[in-house]
Amino acid sequence: MNVGGFISQLLQVLIALALAPLLVGWVNQCRAWLQNKSAPSLLLPYRTIHKLFIKDAVVADTASPIFRIAPYIVFGAMCCAAAIVPSLATDLPFASAADAIALVGLFALARVFVALAAMDTGTAFGSLGARREMFIGFLAEPALLMVLFTASLISGSTSLPTIVDTLAHREFAIYPSLAFAGVAFTMVSLAENARVPVDNPATHLELTMIHEAMILEYSARHLALIEWASAMKLFNYSCIGLALFFPFGIASGGDWLGVVGAAPTLVAKLAIGGFALALIETLSAKMRIFRAPEFLGTAFLLAVLGMLVNLLLGS
């Protein structure tokens, strides 16, 4: 328990809260730019969230309390996840409360509540979206766990700060297993964040939408929280990816002043990562929903191969 740890912990959550909509705005801008469209403002997600917060909420008559509390739970889960993932520093007092497996559990909790709330109002789209989301989720989760296990095997711990510390301060070596895990992780994050090959975040077409179908019934502050939470989810996934596969520049140990230096590095890495995401989304076409098992099956296969190769080669 030290002051520096708490400061870096607090700073990290605040940065995640503040920068998450910016990341979404940046990805949208890159995507528009790559597709030769005129780009929306970088600050558009902030304005949307602000606009939604000052509106009056409308809740369906048939909705149960689950519908009302779901946005808060989802948002809370994403804040917790932002506190666990070492994006700026590895000296996080809160992170000892939950390891990589619990992190996957947090994401699962958020997913379950969004799906429950979607089915709660009894609309056709809601249950359709919820079913699809659970379908994607149950395929993506094992792959994500395997990716995290690969990293845990290398560092000998499932605690995320320890993993990142080990990966960041090792002597230079080529890890084929991490390359496998990296590709698998990219595929999983595309599926989990409702990005293009699996879901299209920009569409409201009935037959294809997954995430949008679930939140159709939400309005005003509830919708704002959900939108903010999904931006934070993208932010968290990007930070996990950056922490596992590009861990340089993260402040370690009790060096809480290093956090100040780590912030610009993180922003730069996120900018590059966001551009890469936009590039992937532009280059790929959306798959039929029944191709998703093949896509996520490949991700699972790569993650398991990474783990096996790690066990065999010891690297």
């Binding site: 002597e171 070596a173 084929p176 690297s315």
Partner: peptide, 21 residues
């Protein structure tokens, strides 16, 4: 973990690539 020479690491990488292919 004992350090293995750099060329062996590249061989490991190529072996993993072979498996992937």
């Amino acid at each position: 973990m004992t350090a293995i020479p750099f060329y062996a690491q590249i061989i490991n990488l190529l072996a993993a690539l072979l498996l992937l292919l």
